[in-house]
Design a protein around this nucleic acid. Structure first.
Lengths: 192, 192, 192, 192
DNA sequence: TATGAATGAGGATTCATTCAT
DNA sequence: GATGAATGAATCCTCATTCAT
């Protein structure tokens, strides 16, 4: 039992050690040797804990996603009304403290375009599900507070689509101010 | 002059010859040798016309994009009113005849996540610009025909964001029926 | 007959066109394409007139050797006595006007270390022979003028060995002033 | 510490394994694959220890140079007087047991004509310096024993120039008997 | 005779993966 | 469990050479 926990911890620890390297280089050009050196472990050790390069990125994405969730949930619970929560749930990702998280998400999405294995799919589904739950609850609250007129289910999905859309657009602009503007324009249209 | 045209033509011709191979394999695992063989030219010839693998994908994406534009413009001009045109502009991409186009677009977008050179940027800007012009004109017409209440500029951008969002969602579902449903749900919400 | 002369002339002309390129780049890294472009002819044309890269260097070396001979013979005939002629025959190669000639000779010698075909051998023999004839006549004159005490034959060979030695040393120092100093030290030792 | 010594030893070991191949083929036509096979190591291993082909030749030249020095120093210490030592220091290189050493030296010199990196320069300087020290001490001894009349410094340099010259001439003749004759003719002229 | 587009053999180099320590 | 030296398959890319025009 203890060793399994250790194994998970070490996996995460190695992945986090590689964060800087992964976000600063093109993932395509990174080698296992470089990653092992960055994490201060032997090449063989990498193979103890990861299938390949993409597996490290997955672990790193999960780590940062969980951190993002923890921080934003905390802040969200301090916000008073549904409107503020909805705006925050869209905008928080583009705050400066999450620049690393955005970078990793970009790299993760890039890998998704060519990689389609189980662990990747599973994490994508989890991301989708958890976001949908969040937006569903926010829409419910919004309808209660009468800032949203829509029936619950559809609007939550539209919000989810738009949320991911904005991230894609962000990768195009690569400008957080611009994307924040676009987001608020959209939310002003949807929310009363 | 003649040779320049020939060079452009041959570039396109080679890229199109590689279409099947590119869409059926994982681009990451494709080699220049395989592509050269598929196009029935020597390896050296590939290097005569392309910088690398990604350059071939770019050419292919451009070729299919232009074909898509030509076909959809033609059909669009037969449609009577703004509402139909808007729905068509969103849904056409998911018709079965454009399955190849969707595949290429997926591969192209995957490459965008790690590649950031001039020709890729240029084409991305062109895509963005041309789509924005289309949606702007459709919104104008929609407002004229009183099926859209919004001020022109903002709605066009929202449509554009949603359009690209739907494609990202499609890559997740990989199910044209589902995405068509989502699109129509969204458009029913926006259009009267 | 005319065409043969033309062929020889064109061969020389192409080789001379490549002089700058050959002396400024490392011969190992030069390609036939580059040489053809530099000479403003097609790649196929190069093959009409030359066996390979080394053949161009040979032609260029011959051209510059003949030029060197012509210029130095002229100047030598103006010199009054054997002593002056001997000193000039050693030092002239290191005058600034012959920097190109030295460079080519270096490249030619480098090729000799791995290439051993007939035309290269023939030219090396010719160089050796002509220099020996020159030094033999200078020694004869020197003995007549009583500035050399030695029997003719041996000294001519020693001079020839030293002459080529100095060039090898020059390639090591790559400093004309230093080599001139060494040469004069040596000749002061040999000549009264 | 141990690994550094091992690395140096393995480097030398690989280079020595390639000796036969390097001296029997034209270095220009040798491939890393052939060298790796000859040394019974993988291609990747070659790159672990060497920059390129020329780096192997450098290592081999150094190995054989050190062997040559060791053998000749030993024999030289048995010789009685300066005259014998001077003659031996010139002639030893052309003894049959050093045919490999001559071949490598030829190849090394050929590479010097187009390669000018630090490690090559450093070794060339070392060669020059050590030979100059040897000849200086021999000239000193010769003056003591009154077989040389010259002032010490100049003659040592002249001997050094001639020594290298003779090797160049040898590459032309490729005939040890002839070169030995030339050497003795020269030394008879210099030494009383 | 001159050309240069097309070629593909072949060499350089990389790097994921193994396995003895 | 951790390591990193050794490996060689795999891929890149070059460039001498050909040959139809």
């Amino acid at each position: 039992m203890a060793t399994i926990i250790d194994k998970k911890q070490k996996r995460r620890c190695i992945a986090l050690s590689c964060m800087k390297l992964i976000t600063s280089c093109c993932i395509k050009d990174l080698t296992i040797s470089q990653l092992a050196k960055e994490a201060n472990v032997g090449k063989g050790t990498i193979y103890e804990y990861f299938m390949d390069k993409e597996d490290i990125v997955l672990e790193l994405t999960q780590a940062l996603y969980e951190e993002y969730k923890q921080i934003t949930n905390k802040k969200m619970s301090c916000l008073q009304n549904a409107k503020e929560k909805i705006y925050y749930s869209f905008n928080s990702l583009y705050e400066s403290e999450f620049s690393m998280h955005r970078k990793i998400l970009n790299i993760f999405m890039g890998i998704c375009h060519y990689r389609d294995n189980i662990s990747y799919k599973r994490f994508k589904k989890r991301l989708y599900k958890e976001r949908l739950i969040l937006f569903t609850s926010l829409v419910e609250k919004g309808v209660e507070e009468k800032i949203l007129k829509e029936d619950t289910k559809n609007l939550a999905k539209i919000l989810l689509n738009s949320f991911s859309s904005f991230f894609v657009i962000f990768l195009f602009y690569n400008n957080t101010k611009k994307i924040t503007k676009e987001i608020n324009r959209f939310l002003d249209y949807v929310v009363r």
